[in-house]
Amino acid sequence: MASHSATAGHADGHDHPTWSTYWKIAVILFVITAIEVSAFYIPAWETSWIYVPSMLFLSTIKFTLVVMYYMHLKYDHKLFRSLFTGPLIVAALTLIGLMFLFSKLSIRLGLLS
């Protein structure tokens, strides 16, 4: 960050996402949500071990798409990316830590557990 302090940066300049990017993202979001909701109604999927990981994976994709394209972090100054991902990582680690502390998640460690 230190390197570009004196000159004006590239705030909102070059390659902005275009209308075609926007509607493609919208379609993908729509389709993923449709898949998620239908998975909920497919017993074979809903009861298998893959269900929770697949749901988390699909919603992570949606989350990332909105953040990267609609919130245009992909095109913006990298400062904004760190201002968002830093706190997001702390928040995610805290959440995971709390899940372990309240025994919602656990790791088997032989004698210790």
Binding site: L93, F100, L101, L112, S113
Partner: peptide
Amino acid sequence: FLGFGVWAHHMFAVGMGPIA
């Protein structure tokens, strides 16, 4: 940064188990 990863040392007395 580490300041966010030490909070439960205020709570050793509540019995969180050996791993925590």
